[in-house]
């Protein structure tokens, strides 16, 4: 019986080790793909219509979900914030609360999470299917590098779209917060804006949020591209890769957010 437990334990450990090594393997491949992508970026940036097409697919087509979510997030922030702030008699600070939470955290983070769900999965599925139907192989045989033609434009499309989407998210969220706080609740409009302007710093808040969203753009797009590129060329493989895109992007965004915030605050 003791022997059985030991062997079971050994197999669990072995399994764990295998998975760990597998993850390192994947991380290495992802870094290599990232390197190749950067190396062949020049080639694809010279033909801007490829990148513009991808900005259309990742950025413009994500607008609706981003804007609607931002509006609701801003309104909820204002409602919740007012509820708490008025207990301390400082309900004019609501503008500060809404703006700071959006600009510093919620704008970049929620945008990245929505982006992973909307655009990231689309990228993974598209590249996975292109691989499954041998389109990437065919491109290679035509002496066209799939990384330069397919991967790099999508990468830049995502990296350019993300900060724009995050800025829009914050702006629309603040408008949503304004609509709830000023006309609905009756906070003074002048106090709303002036307190906000007094407390939101351009470099520390707006720029840091912008930097965050750029980093999230690189991370989310790269994860989506890698999962698609790495997917086994079957229907099941592609569907699993799509799920992994959402899970890994979300984890990466939240983890990176913590790391960057701790650097920015200190």
């Amino acid at each position: 019986m003791f022997k059985g437990v030991v062997s079971k334990l050994a197999s669990v450990l072995q399994n764990f080790g295998h998975r760990l090594i597998e993850q390192f393997w994947r991380l290495g491949s992802a870094s290599r793909l990232f390197g190749y992508t950067l190396a062949s970026s020049g080639e694809s940036l010279r033909r801007p219509f490829l990148v513009i097409r991808e900005i259309y697919f990742t950025g413009v087509l994500s607008l609706i979900i981003i804007l609607v979510s931002a509006f609701f997030v801003g309104m909820v922030l204002a409602l919740q914030g007012y509820n708490t702030l008025q207990k301390y008699g400082s309900s004019e600070a609501i503008g500060v609360l809404v703006a700071l939470s959006l600009v510093r955290e919620l704008g970049p983070v929620v945008t990245a999470l929505l982006f992973a769900g909307r655009a990231g999965t689309a990228i993974t599925a598209e590249i996975g299917l292109m691989k499954a139907t041998e389109q990437l192989s065919a491109m290679e045989m035509m002496a066209v590098s799939p990384i330069a033609r397919v991967v790099a434009p999508r990468f830049w499309g995502g990296v350019i779209s993300m900060p724009l989407l995050a800025s829009l998210f914050s702006m629309v969220g603040i408008l949503g917060g304004y609509l709830v706080a000023v006309p609905l609740i009756g906070v003074d409009g002048g106090a709303f804006w002036s307190q906000m302007q007094a407390s939101v710093d351009f470099r520390e808040d707006v720029m840091n949020g912008f930097i965050k969203s750029c980093v999230f753009g690189v991370a989310c797009t790269m994860i989506a591209l890698f999962e698609g590129y790495d997917a086994p060329p079957t229907a099941e493989g592609v569907s699993r890769a799509t799920t992994r895109t959402v899970v890994n992007s979300s984890l990466a965004v939240l983890g990176l957010d913590f790391v960057m915030t701790s650097f920015m605050i200190s």
């Binding site: 703006a99 906000m196 939101v200």
Partner: peptide, 13 residues
Amino acid sequence: GVAALLGLAMKVG
């Protein structure tokens, strides 16, 4: 997108 960023800089920040 750029207008929103500028808005954040001018109106909010």
